[in-house]
Simulated assay, not measured.
Amino acid sequence: MMFTLVLTRSYTGNLMSLLAVRYIPQPFQTLKAVLDSHATNMVWEAGSMYDQFLSSVEAGVFVGVRAAEENGRLKYVKSTEYTPILDEQVRHGTHVFIFEDLTGRVLKANDFSRTGMGKMPVN
Rank of each mutant, 00 (worst) to 15 (best):
L86S: 02
M2E: 13
S113M: 15
M49T: 00
A46K: 12
R91V: 09
I98P: 00
R66W: 02
R114P: 01
K108M: 06
L5M: 08
T12Q: 04
V61H: 04
L19H: 06
D111H: 15
E100M: 09
Y23A: 13
P84C: 06
Y82A: 01
F99D: 01
R105K: 14
L7C: 09
D87E: 15
A67I: 05
H95F: 00
F53V: 10
K32F: 02
V77F: 03
Y82K: 07
M120P: 05
P84M: 05
M16A: 14
D51L: 03
S79K: 15
L15S: 12
H38I: 00
Y23K: 14
D101P: 02
V77M: 03
T12A: 10
R73K: 05
M2Y: 10
K78I: 04
N41T: 08
H38L: 06
V96Q: 03
I24K: 13
G116H: 14
Y76T: 07
L102S: 07
Q26I: 09
N71V: 02
R22V: 10
T83F: 02
M117K: 15
L35A: 04
T8K: 09
L54W: 01
H95S: 02
G60W: 04
Y23D: 14
D111C: 08
R66T: 09
V63S: 05
F99A: 08
T30A: 07
P84D: 00
I85F: 03
D111T: 12
N14C: 11
K119Y: 07
F53Y: 15
L15D: 12
D36Y: 05
T80N: 15
S10Y: 11
G118S: 12
T80A: 15
V96K: 05
H92V: 07
K78S: 14
G118M: 07
G60F: 06
P25I: 05
Y50V: 06
A33L: 01
T40L: 06
R9Y: 12
V57H: 06
T40H: 08
L35K: 00
V57M: 10
A20M: 14
P84N: 06
K75R: 11
R114N: 13
A67D: 02
A39I: 04
